[in-house]
């Protein structure tokens, strides 16, 4: 009896000790690690990539490419920007970046006075190099160091040729641009027009619309009413493609129309997969990101001075709807 009591007692003792030990271990052990207080003053170049369209497939890829390259070249990079082309926000971010005296800014070009003033006056005042990516602004107006991205003029020519090959050398084409008259769109348009000039049987209708969805839809409706015989559409601003196609779809079949756009719109790829777009000019956003960081680092390290002001072109290629599975 006594022996059994002692055994039970020692069992309880051991059990309690075990529990105590386990909880003590949990209570005193801190397995979470705090971020290391970094004392290293070694100046890694701080680079900011600022875009107007965060969280779109195209710009995500640019950011991804830039981050990869930044990691490779030992610079710290952050991607800032606004959502849905919010210009105020975008410019504010740009100003913060300039005022924060980052080492370099890679920015999606915006063809506005405020943008130009910031880049030309402010950035120059602090001596911060600015590279435009994806969308360019004229060098003289912005004092940008260089441009990395597609040759938009070439892209315009390609899309025009693509359409001609599909549609034939006769027809009516509606070019839908936005009213911002951004530099890259102008470039595209000039490319398209350059090609179509030599085909007198192809009539072009140029239209502008503000970028909001409702307004795009309204404009498309107008255009369809005005030009019922239109054979093709080119959405020069890829972001308008979605709304445009939606309106066309409401009127009737989408298939008979030859509709083309670029891949930097948020819906471009989806529409292409649905075969609503007949063709898309695909740019290489990741490469743009990589190249822009690379070029900026070269400038910062004084390896290539000055940079090629005309810009570094990235690849573009055509994708037809049938190519896509």
């Amino acid at each position: 009896m006594r022996k059994a009591g002692i055994i039970v007692l020692s069992f309880i003792c051991i059990f309690l000790s075990y529990l105590t030990f386990i909880t003590a271990q949990k209570a005193f052990q801190s397995d979470w690690k705090l971020p290391v207080a970094s004392s290293h003053k070694e100046d890694r170049f701080r680079i900011v990539l600022i875009t107007q369209e965060l969280d779109t497939p195209f710009w995500d890829k640019v950011g991804k490419g830039a981050e990869q390259q930044a990691q490779k070249s030992g610079a710290s990079l952050e991607v800032w920007g606004s959502y849905g082309k919010n210009q105020d926000d975008f410019l504010k971010k740009l100003e913060i970046a300039i005022q924060s005296k980052v080492d370099g800014i890679i920015v999606q070009g915006l063809d506005t006075d405020r943008f130009k003033e910031l880049t030309k006056v402010k950035a120059a005042f602090y001596g911060i190099p600015i590279i435009t990516v994806g969308n360019d602004v004229p060098k003289a107006e912005s004092l940008r160091k260089t441009y990395v991205g597609s040759n938009q003029h070439l892209a315009g020519m390609m899309i025009a040729k693509l359409m001609l090959s599909d549609m034939g050398q006769e027809g009516q084409v509606i070019l839908l641009s936005d009213s911002q008259k951004e530099y890259y769109q102008e470039e595209r348009l000039s490319g398209i027009k350059e090609v179509l000039q030599s085909f007198p049987n192809v009539k072009t209708v140029y239209a502008e619309t503000p970028e909001t969805r409702e307004q795009v839809i309204a404009k498309t409706r107008d255009l369809l009413n005005q030009y019922p015989e239109a054979d093709g559409f080119i959405a020069v601003n890829a972001n308008t493609a979605g709304a445009m196609i939606q309106e066309i779809g409401r009127r009737g079949q989408v298939e008979p129309y030859f509709i083309y756009s670029f891949d930097d719109g948020s819906e471009s790829i989806t529409l292409l997969k649905q075969k609503k777009l007949d063709g898309v000019i695909e740019q290489s956003p990741e490469m743009m990101g990589r190249k822009s960081v690379d070029v900026l680092m070269q400038w910062l390290k004084n390896e290539t001075v000055p940079l090629d002001a005309d810009g570094y072109s990235s690849e573009i290629r055509m994708i037809k709807a049938m190519d896509e599975r």
């Binding site: 971020p35 290391v36 207080a37 710290s76 005296k101 980052v102």
Partner: peptide, 19 residues
């Protein structure tokens, strides 16, 4: 307060103050 997580932001912050 600098640490590996907020190094970039903090640097910007301090430069903003300077500005």
């Amino acid at each position: 307060l600098r640490n590996s997580e907020n190094e970039f932001a903090l640097m910007n912050y301090m430069n903003l103050i300077d500005s």
